[in-house]
Design a binder for these strands. Sequence first.
DNA 1: GACGATACGGACCACGGGTCCGTTTTGCAA
DNA 2: TTGCAAAACGGACCCGTGGTCCGTATCGTC
Lengths: 203, 203
Amino acid sequence: MPERQSSRKDAIRNREAVLAAADALFTRRESPEDVTMADVAAAAGVGKGTLFRAFGDRAGLLRALYEARLEPIRRAVETGPPPLGPATPPHVRVPALLDAALCFKLDHRRLALALEEGGSGSPYRAEHYERWHSLLRAVLEQIPGLDDSDFTAHALLAATRADLVEHLAGEERVPRETMRAQLADYVTRVLASGPPQKPPAEK
Amino acid sequence: MPERQSSRKDAIRNREAVLAAADALFTRRESPEDVTMADVAAAAGVGKGTLFRAFGDRAGLLRALYEARLEPIRRAVETGPPPLGPATPPHVRVPALLDAALCFKLDHRRLALALEEGGSGSPYRAEHYERWHSLLRAVLEQIPGLDDSDFTAHALLAATRADLVEHLAGEERVPRETMRAQLADYVTRVLASGPPQKPPAEK
DNA sequence: GACGATACGGACCACGGGTCCGTTTTGCAA
DNA sequence: TTGCAAAACGGACCCGTGGTCCGTATCGTC
């Protein structure tokens, strides 16, 4: 588990270079699985040893890259203004969160794909999933009439799975805005049926 | 694409043996990825050549096994009695279909897992997914007030993804019946909000 | 029983992840 | 500035796995 910071500037520079190179490769190449660790090392102008020392293993590299790219959204969610931030009413924040997730996966298709399925072990063990899930769950909990917010959170997140997004955007050529609208619609429908009858105009 | 039938009895016997051995191994072993092709061959008492000739590649073996195990459900869906068969009213059949999918993945966790993520390329290219999706879509289409039945079908199926099921059943120790109830609930909620207001008591 | 066709099976290959260790760089301190 | 130990470098190397090849064994037919 070699994940602690180094103070040496060459180490830092190399880490940066690897991250950049990997990002470039993942967006460029068709499928995540044909970007090899040796490729990344070469593209970063670095030896394989360096790369593995810095990130542990392939999964570690993916995780680091993903986390880095996710950072802005994480901040927006944790301390930002509505509609993502904490000061948002639940029935608005839930669609916003899922939309953010969708957009992220649209913007980083290959990367999300690589991490979400290629990564040894299910995506559900990753702690970034844990974070999204427990947040979503907590927000759902505040919506009256929705029990099973745990399962519901899983199910909603499943609708933004990277490979589904990739399939729709890639194979089926569904445009970005269409997909966002469809997801928003779907989420609305799930939330709408809280207390069996209740027109949207209230509060 | 070596997939056509052979008339030679040793070939048939071996094919059977491989299928059985693979099934056994997948259910026994913890994770699908630590059952290797060599393992399967050995367990079936067969050479690797035989195995690859019969199924083409790993994905082919998985597909064949999955298809075989799925057969009963396929028949029940295509020509069986309600609630799975074609003579079922849509708002009953949809939950039934998803419940069947869930139960199948519960009964064949490792296998579904292996096929759904390990298989080269996304699960969304597999034609068995295509079948489930287009069927579900068609049924959804008959429910008034649901537009986007295409996306909705994807989203609902995503709630039964093998790795999610595995996570819930394995890590979280959610009991089978609980999970079924949660899914049923969720599906109901999605369907319920068709025409914005409509109490459940009608026809 | 013989013979062509078909299947068998394990040695063999390619390739990708991950390791090792002699060499180089860095930062500190004398 | 020079000395030096600690840290990082990098590419040769190892190993396991999917997949291939081809000489040999089996099948089924005449």
